[in-house]
């Protein structure tokens, strides 16, 4: 594989991790979030700070990074208990702008210069770069997918799905809306933090604009395109939207226009996403492989 392809593949794997997390919040628990890039950024900045100023290795910092992202996710998940759909969308957009502004204007976070000189990940004394780092991202992606797979089959997952479908009916069955919405935010933002840590150690120079609002739109587009609430949807969405700008390089300036048009088309014609129930892709898969609809 050429270095160029490895770079694209690594970024797609990192995006897939982050977007799987967004899928837990949006797809599993039904809580709209337009500020997921903020948590991707919180993960990246905490990893960068712990590595450059704290002198910690990637591995010792990683649990802290995930914990910090998940804890801030818990705090910022609190509005979801009070506000519904459209207001939550606006609240999460606001969170994204506030977090980005903090990174940009607080000198501790490097200000407009961002944070540079983030070391590479070491693994038993070997510097992970290129293909090796891609495999590391792939490993974490597999872990994240396994967690999502387990979550979908667990009682907690069922409780989230029930809340997503009919909140008051679920509550009158003993399912606590507070507990499971916050659980979804904690898991989802924890995954974003993991993705952020990998991103910081891969790019090795981060700045506030890497985690701006359009990045949140990109993440949400990936979830909607692939299929909200499905297991593989986020991975497929990250793959397609991660690869497209590379394939259509000359059109890169128009990519957000493209994402918006894509979102509208998906919502109009395939609201369940590419891998959603009764989607065209699923019907084709089912006709090729009997029993694949599960």
């Amino acid at each position: 594989m050429s270095a160029y392809l490895i770079t694209i593949a690594t970024l797609i794997a990192i995006y897939a991790i982050v977007v799987c997390g967004l899928n837990v919040i949006v797809g599993f628990a039904g809580q709209i979030s337009l500020g997921h890039a903020a948590f991707f950024g919180i993960g990246a900045y905490s990893a960068a700070l712990l590595a450059t100023k704290g002198g910690l290795s990637f591995w010792t910092a990683l649990p802290c990074v995930i914990a910090v992202s998940a804890f801030i996710g818990l705090l910022l998940g609190l509005p979801s208990l009070r506000v519904k759909a459209d207001f939550l969308a606006i609240t999460t957009i606001g969170i994204n702008f506030i977090v980005e502004a903090l990174f940009l204007y607080v000198p501790f976070f490097g200000g407009a210069l961002g944070i540079g000189g983030i070391p590479r990940v070491m693994f038993f004394g070997i510097k992970l770069k290129g293909l090796a780092f891609f495999y590391l991202c792939l490993f974490f992606l597999v872990v994240v997918i396994l967690i999502c797979w387990w979550f979908r089959r667990s009682w907690a997952g069922l409780a989230c799905f029930a809340l997503r479908e009919e909140e008051s009916a679920a509550a009158s069955m003993g399912i606590s809306p507070v507990r499971f919405k916050l659980l979804a935010f904690v898991i989802g933002t924890g995954m974003a933090g993991l993705g952020g840590a990998l991103y910081a150690h891969y790019i090795r120079f981060i700045a506030a604009t890497d985690f701006a609002f359009p990045v949140s739109i990109l993440f949400l587009s990936m979830v909607v395109l692939g299929g909200m609430g499905t297991l593989w949807g986020p991975v497929l969405g990250a793959l397609i939207l991660g690869a497209l700008p590379e394939i259509f390089r000359p059109l890169v300036d128009y990519r957000f226009l493209f994402y918006m048009v894509l979102l509208l088309i998906m919502i109009r014609f395939q609201p369940g996403g590419l891998l959603g129930e009764r989607s065209a892709v699923r019907r084709v898969l089912a006709s090729i492989i009997p029993g694949a609809h599960q």
Binding site: E166, A169, A170
Partner: peptide, 12 residues
């Protein structure tokens, strides 16, 4: 409670 209009979880 059996709510008005059943309120089953539609996609489950």
């Amino acid at each position: 409670m059996v709510p008005e209009r059943a309120r089953v979880f539609p996609r489950l």
